[in-house]
């Protein structure tokens, strides 16, 4: 098995416009996932059309990770966006259903974020 998987680097500002374009072309939202890489957080938005996977890739600084919500285009994105907020401390603006950080119940705030983020979280008053 070897399927082609494309990764398109993108800036957060261009995200919603690009997603809208993909939506019009008939793509389905597969997942939104985050990865902590040192002091950056990488977001992968995966879309699928007829079995081919297309990924949009965002690189955000971990200290101030802000990203616009795509739940106005793909309503079902709200679950993924709450997830990346609660686990990685990525602030997603304008989620359709915002759980205000209460989606996952964790003892450590933002457990999957960078070390600095997790340590700074109580001071930030989450």
């Amino acid at each position: 098995m070897s399927e082609a998987q494309t990764y398109l680097p993108l800036s957060p500002d261009a995200l919603v416009a690009k997603v809208r374009e993909l939506h019009a072309e008939g793509y389905r939202l597969v997942q939104i996932g985050a990865t902590t890489l040192g002091e950056t957080i990488e977001l992968n938005y995966s879309f699928d059309r007829a079995g081919t996977l297309l990924n949009l890739r965002l690189q955000l600084p971990a200290a101030a990770a802000h990203v616009p919500s795509i739940s106005s285009v793909y309503w079902c994105a709200f679950l993924y966006e709450n997830e990346i907020h609660d686990l990685f401390r990525v602030h997603v603006e304008g989620i359709a259903v915002d759980y205000q950080g209460k989606f996952y119940q964790t003892t450590v705030p933002f457990p999957f974020g960078t070390r600095a983020q997790t340590a700074a979280a109580p001071a930030a008053g989450n």
């Binding site: 989606f103 996952y104 119940q105 964790t106 457990p111 999957f112």
Partner: peptide, 12 residues
């Protein structure tokens, strides 16, 4: 919906 009751952090 409210989920998160059995989050175990396996990914970590």
């Amino acid at each position: 919906p409210k989920i998160g009751f059995v989050h175990r952090g396996l990914e970590k």
